[in-house]
Nucleic acid binder design. Structure first.
Lengths: 111, 111
DNA sequence: TTCACGTGTCATATTCTTCTGACATGTGCA
DNA sequence: TGCACATGTCAGAAGAATATGACACGTGAA
């Protein structure tokens, strides 16, 4: 599960938030959540190049917001279909403090 | 209140998430949450230049994670003190879909 | 064989964020 | 007067994210 639990460290949390903090990627995620879609079709619907879409998809997949798998179309083409994974992230001061506490200290430049 | 309610549009949500998605800014926010601090002192504690810190503080203040005000120190210096504002952001597929729905459509290239 | 459609990747722009090192300004105190 | 410490801002370097267009490859159908 990708729930953003209390064990995330700051870097992980940051990675997930950065991934979701882009309207471009929000749109991708929403589109795929509404209906699992293969890459080329998705690129057409969202009006962006495949190369770019791949970058975004990878970013979203890396942090567990969506997952891709292969499927054969009716006419035998291998399609890479992405689908959204459910998640919940509760974000507040505590979460952030906890995430920092669970992180390798950012080198205390001990003079 | 800066609760990240259901009326946020995608750009606002994105702005808040981007602001909080930086470990650097997380650290600033956590430090200020632990204890309201003036800028120079904060820069010293976090080991970063004031110029840079200002940039981060501004970013955090813009989206309502913290607020600054002036205060006179014992020896009469004007200090700009920042303090953290409480917030809760609940992030899931619904939130994002709603945010996108509440947004000006990203130019539907109507051929 | 050629076309249409799919996958995946690369080198290259372009643009945005982050960061540094100055500078100008003001106040209290020795 | 000069030092220590504060605020605020700017130009420009350095680095990271975003975006494009072209390439290589594979498969089914006309």
């Amino acid at each position: 599960m990708s729930s953003g639990g209390p064990v995330d460290n700051a870097d992980q949390l940051s990675a997930r938030l950065t991934a979701i903090a882009s309207t471009q990627r929000m749109r991708i995620l929403a589109a795929v959540a509404a209906e699992p879609t293969h890459v080329s079709e998705l690129a057409r619907r969202l009006g962006m190049s495949r190369a770019l879409l791949y970058m975004h998809l990878q970013r979203l997949e890396e942090v567990g917001f969506l997952a891709g798998h292969f499927e054969l179309s009716d006419d035998g083409k291998a399609l890479k279909i992405f689908e959204a994974l459910p998640f919940v992230i509760a974000l507040d001061l505590e979460t952030i403090t906890a995430a920092l506490a669970a992180s390798p200290p950012p080198q205390e430049t001990e003079k």
